[in-house]
Amino acid sequence: MNKKQGLSRALQRREDVAGYLFMAPSLIFFIGFVIIPMFICVGMSLTDATLHNAAPTRFVGLKNFITMWTDKTFLGALKNTFLIVVVSVPVTCLFSLWVASATYKMHNVPLSLFRVIFYLPVVTGSVAVTVVWKWIFDNYSGILNTVLKTSGIIQKNINWLGTPGLTIWCIILILLTTSVGQPIVLYISALGNVDQSLVEAAEVDGANNLQVFWRIKWPQIMPTTLYIIVITTINSFQCFALIQLLTQGGSDTNTVMYYIYYTAFKMTEQAGHFGYANAMGVILAIFIGILSAIQFKLGSEK
């Protein structure tokens, strides 16, 4: 008995040593470049730290967190960010679910082809995608205006990227093309894994296609839907490159992520207000955390 306990203890120690030795390289990077920055982020959000360290950094408590709710620019950015999330998450889900259900029974070649095509904007990279869309939407040399004008749909050029209220929708459209790739891949795989015997049983019982979809397939792909909602929400909240390259936050397209960048690196009069930028980062992280938690809770109740 004693001997056996001793052995299992030695074994446990062996597992501990080996386990942590194998973990060590990853943990060093993970702690160094994810965990520590998170603590710095929270810490700095309570100070008036700046980019240049000209004045000594002072602890200001929750001042940054109070200031932001009276900051009109921040509130505008928050409104735009929520608009982007509220539109792009459901549209991305429905769009990719439709594409996946229209393609997943195809043969290997057309299936791969469609999967690759819808993934291309992601691989192309945000800079190349934005540069070309900026040209497509361009007021004078953009193909959208020239096509609409030669076909007589519009008389005068539309300034797609310089009209408050319109520009944000152009950005949402571009964002959609760059965010459906991964959901489509996931849905294709999930639909392929749906238990075929249940589908057949339902069809024998006289269920039509729509009933089979909602009663049999939808519940089975629910975990995938949930995961897609979470990753799309996170990505939409972080919408940055499109804004920075297309409008620099002009035409009422400012987002929280862009405003964080602007505050930290661009704000001219207070150049580089790191404390305030980090406070907004903390708030953004809290929003995303709450939304992800709600989505998971709803999903596990179903």
Partner: peptide
């Protein structure tokens, strides 16, 4: 938990680091 957090939020602290 770290995977669910937005990566871009920690960019400014990373810069400091």
């Amino acid at each position: 938990a770290a995977m669910a957090l937005p990566k871009q939020v920690v960019l400014i602290p990373l810069l400091k680091e």
